[in-house]
């Protein structure tokens, strides 16, 4: 490639080989998940009644979208480093959902306007997280722990009726159902028009753009990045804001899917999003992200839930299975990282 490169020493070549094998193993996260996917799929196809039906596959796709979007946001946040984590994704979803629901169901606002406001609310809550972390310098874990409570409390407040009871909203116009209940050629619309395009956009954002380069650099080493003229604060503000926006999009899809908006939507999704992100190869200390692997991981986890349910495993064990999967992935991570040192 380059003249001086031709003079490379034996050591250099060795290290190149080492690098290649590292790169291969890291790349393997996607293949590893696909392999796991196939094994789990085959297992359930044999043992779970109805698992391998078109309807069931469709429902796995449907259920993977909302948690998948949260996991993608989580991935960006964790990748930005500095202990980056977002515990409030579920609460942002809940708040955005109830805002959309109230605006349409109680105030009869134009649904498009309501959706835009809902998305803005989600984006705003994400931005608020970012501002607290970047400017008040509160560690992300604590900031988002606080806003997790704050946003779900706000959601309850918004949903109160005149008697002070938190009420769900269910009177959406029928057109609103297109986001979560329709399909294109049998494939759920939210999967094709939201999940896949957003995954591709984020993949390109992280891998091909300046923003992505700066994000990975910031997460790898804040000081090197600052000394290279990167505005690490700006990067961090952006990732938390994007996480909020994605939570709001998930809120839109979920309220449309179940034709109802409740303030507690998303309350059990906070930690699951982190789990899926880590399972998808996101390095918990930042700097490494594989968007496609996170995409696969969110389908994998949804499929696992679905399959366990179908073969009649107690729901209590479903969360346990997720725990096992995560520990397995982390041990694998450790082995890979040790070998690459």
């Amino acid at each position: 490639m380059i003249n001086s490169i031709k003079n490379s020493t034996v050591d250099d070549v060795k290290s190149l080989e080492k690098n290649k094998s590292i790169a291969l193993i890291f790349l393997n996260r996607k293949f590893l998940l696909l392999l796991l996917f196939i094994i789990i799929y085959a297992f359930f196809a044999v043992f779970a009644h109805n698992f391998n039906s078109f309807q069931n596959i469709e429902s796995i796709m449907i259920f993977s979208v909302e948690i998948g979007l949260l996991s993608l946001g989580e991935t960006l946040v964790i990748t930005s480093g500095f202990g980056g984590i977002d515990l409030s994704v579920g609460s942002m979803l809940g708040l955005s959902a109830i805002v959309i629901g109230e605006l349409i169901g109680r105030f009869g606002l134009n649904i498009w306007l309501a959706i835009i406001i809902g998305l803005l609310v989600g984006t705003g809550t994400g931005l608020f997280n970012g501002l607290m972390i970047v400017y008040a310098k509160i560690p992300p874990l604590l900031t988002t722990l606080a806003t997790m409570y704050l946003y779900s409390s706000l959601a309850l407040l918004v949903s109160m009726d005149q008697y002070g009871n938190a009420m769900p909203i269910s009177n959406f116009p029928s057109i609103y159902s297109i986001f979560g209940q329709s399909n294109i050629l049998g494939i759920p619309l939210q999967f094709i028009l939201f999940f896949i395009p957003i995954t591709i956009i984020l993949y390109i954002l992280v891998q091909k753009t300046i923003f992505g380069k700066h994000l990975l650099s910031t997460g790898t080493d804040e000081i090197v990045s600052k000394l290279s003229g990167i505005n690490v604060n700006k990067i961090r503000l952006w990732v938390y804001t994007i996480s909020g926006l994605l939570a709001a999009i998930a809120a839109l899809i979920e309220t449309s899917r179940i034709a109802s908006a409740r303030p507690d939507l998303g309350s059990n999704m906070n930690l699951e999003a982190i789990t899926i992100s880590v399972l998808g190869g996101t390095y918990i200390f930042g700097g490494t992200a594989d968007i496609i692997a996170v995409f696969i991981a969110s389908i994998l986890v949804t499929m696992l839930d679905n399959g366990l349910f179908l073969i009649g495993v107690n729901t209590i064990w479903q969360t346990g299975a997720l725990g096992f999967l995560l520990i397995g992935a982390l041990i694998l991570d450790l082995i890979i990282r040790k070998r690459s040192l």
Binding site: I2, N3, S4, I5, S8, D12, S15, L16, N19
Partner: peptide, 21 residues
Amino acid sequence: IKQYVELLSIKAPSLFTNVEA
């Protein structure tokens, strides 16, 4: 980048090599 790598005669297997190597 190649231009500077040549100017400084950096010895590396390729531009994709990790710095730690």
